[in-house]
Design a protein around this nucleic acid. Structure first.
Lengths: 141, 141
DNA sequence: GAAACCGTAACCGTTACGATTACAAGGAGA
DNA sequence: TCTCCTTGTAATCGTAACGGTTACGGTTTC
C-alpha cells in the first residue's frame, strides 16, 4: 500500500487544528507536534485547503484553522485530499494481446482492485475526525 | 496505495500457470505474456513458491506449475505472497509527546488503518483465482 | 558433456518521498 | 510607512524502492 505518511500527517494536522478551535495554528507550531519541517506541514495544509477542509490566514499572526466542524469531516476526505494516487498499480507495459491472459486480465483486475479499494474507503468514510480526536484524548490520558 | 505492480503481475502469472494445467511454463514464456523480463517473473515466482502457491522445476524442460487448484487460491494469498508491505505508513519521526495529539495519535491511527486494510483484504480473500480465470476468458472472448 | 532452465546477486536508470533552503507575497501592528 | 511574521511555492538534495538487465552458479534432461 502507500508508502508515504501524508495521510498520517494530515490526520495529525487536522486533529491539532480541531483541538485549537478558532485560534489559528502556525505551520511551525504544528511541525513541532508532528516533529518535521514546517514546509512539509504547509504542503499538507495546502492540499487540505484545496479540498475545503482548512482555511489559511496569511500575514503576521496568521495560521490555519479547520474550515468545518470535526463532526462533519471523514478520514476519507482527508485521505483523498492528500493522496491522489488510487489503489495498486496495474502492469507497467501492456500485456501481450496474443495471450488469452494478456488480452483479458487488465479490466478484470481493475474491477477487483476497485472493489477492494471501495471496501477500504468505506471504513475511512465512516470514521469522523471528531471520533479520532476523542480517541486521541482517551489514549493520551 | 502501493505503487508497484507486483500484485498485478503475480495474478497474471498465476492465471497463466492455471490455464496451462500440468504443463510447466518457463519464465521466458510467461514474460512474453506479461511483456517484461524473465528475471522479473522469476522473482514473482520465487515469492509465490515461498507461499506454497507454485512449484518450480529446475533443469532442462523445467518451468513452474500451480501447486494448488485455482478454486483453492484466493487473491489475498497472492497479494500477501508478493506484497510484504502492510498498509499505509505512520509518521517517519516519532511525534512530539509533549502535545496531546502527538502523544496519542499513533495507536489510534494504527487501529483505523488496520480496520481499513482488513476490509480491503476481505474482498481479495473472497475472490478465487478460478473466478479470475473465468472472467479473463469471458473478457478475452 | 551440452543445452535448457531456475535462482539469485549485482547493477543501472527512474521515480517518489521527506527534508531543507530560499524567496516572493500578504497582512498586522508600531 | 516600515518592520516583522506568516503563508505559498519553487528548487534542490539524499535516500529508498522499483522495474529492467546482465551475469553466473546450480540443476536436470538428453
Amino acid at each position: 500500500m502507500s508508502k508515504n505518511c501524508r495521510f498520517a500527517v494530515a490526520v495529525h494536522v487536522a486533529s491539532v487544528l480541531a483541538l485549537n478551535g478558532e485560534a489559528p495554528c502556525t505551520s511551525e507550531w504544528i511541525a513541532g507536534s508532528v516533529n518535521t519541517n514546517p514546509v512539509v506541514i504547509r504542503r499538507i495544509l495546502s492540499a487540505l485547503a484545496k479540498a475545503g477542509l482548512v482555511t489559511s490566514i496569511r500575514g503576521s499572526a496568521g495560521g490555519s484553522v479547520l474550515a468545518r466542524r470535526p463532526e462533519t469531516i471523514t478520514l476519507l476526505e482527508i485521505a483523498q485530499a492528500v493522496d491522489e494516487d488510487g489503489g495498486p498499480a496495474l502492469h507497467h507495459q501492456k500485456p501481450n494481446p496474443l495471450c488469452t491472459v494478456g488480452r483479458g486480465i487488465q479490466p478484470v483486475l481493475a474491477g477487483i482492485i476497485q472493489r477492494a479499494e471501495a471496501a477500504r474507503e468505506a471504513v475511512l468514510g465512516q470514521t469522523l475526525l471528531s471520533e479520532v480526536i476523542h480517541a486521541i484524548q482517551v489514549e493520551a490520558g
